[in-house]
């Protein structure tokens, strides 16, 4: 009785494996035809003006098109944690930042502005998510702070702000490529270098 059972089991397992693998095999073979390498693909992406050019002209229009105060409060809290090398505190603040970005609504935007705000928010949420999920790796959090700060800056330039803000720049951040961040205080406290160099950087621009 025992022997028969064992044999039956082995047969069953073996059979099912073969069945399962055959079924899936035919599926993949169907899909694996090679693409004829098309030549007529669209190059339009090359023609767009560089976004770097746009970056330097982000000035405040003065007219408020949304309330960024909650977003900014969470962004500043995250940065304060990064200044103190507090990765888990930064992760918590970033989680809140993510929520406030998802809840943020702008009004009175042109179609083009709305499109850009949507793209900024999509990018900012993704960056904030990475920061919130990488409490164990502060260098990775700071990598995402580079793009996130650009997102925040661009968002301010479209939406406007009621607070006086500072755009700071550190030439050593981002592997010596330099990076900006937004601050509510005039004095420098650098979220990229942390306690090793908290005062590294300068005010690039005052946003009023």
């Amino acid at each position: 009785m025992k022997k028969i059972n064992l044999k039956l089991m082995i047969a069953l397992i073996g059979g099912s494996l073969i069945l399962a693998s055959c079924g899936n095999n035919s599926n993949t073979e169907n899909g694996s035809h090679h693409h004829e390498e098309g030549m007529e693909h669209d190059h339009s992406n090359h023609e767009h003006g560089s976004i770097d050019e746009k970056r330097n002209v982000s000035t405040n229009t003065g007219e408020m098109k949304g309330d960024l105060s909650v977003v900014l409060r969470n962004y500043f809290a995250m940065n304060e944690n990064l200044v103190q090398d507090e990765a888990s505190g930064a992760a918590d603040a970033s989680e809140k930042l993510m929520v406030s970005l998802k809840e943020f609504k702008a009004s009175g935007l042109s179609e083009e502005e709305q499109k850009e705000v949507n793209e900024i928010l999509e990018s900012a949420i993704e960056n904030a998510e990475h920061i919130s999920k990488n409490a164990g790796e502060i260098s990775h959090q700071r990598e995402h702070l580079v793009s996130l700060s650009t997102d925040v800056k661009d968002l301010i330039s479209i939406v406007g702000t009621s607070q006086k803000l500072y755009e700071d720049f550190c030439p050593m951040a981002n592997n010596n490529e330099g990076a900006i961040w937004i601050s509510s205080k005039e004095e420098i406290s650098n979220p990229y270098m942390g306690s090793s160099m908290p005062k590294c950087g300068k005010v690039n621009r005052v946003i009023e």
Partner: peptide, 29 residues
């Protein structure tokens, strides 16, 4: 346990395969 192991072999798998490489592919962009 063995029956369960056999049973789960019938869970349909995702097949991440596409015959045509879209224009949006990184190599063309």
């Amino acid at each position: 346990g063995l029956i369960a192991l056999v049973g789960i072999q019938f869970i349909p798998a995702d097949v991440n395969k596409h015959a045509v490489i879209p224009d949006a592919d990184f190599r063309y962009v």
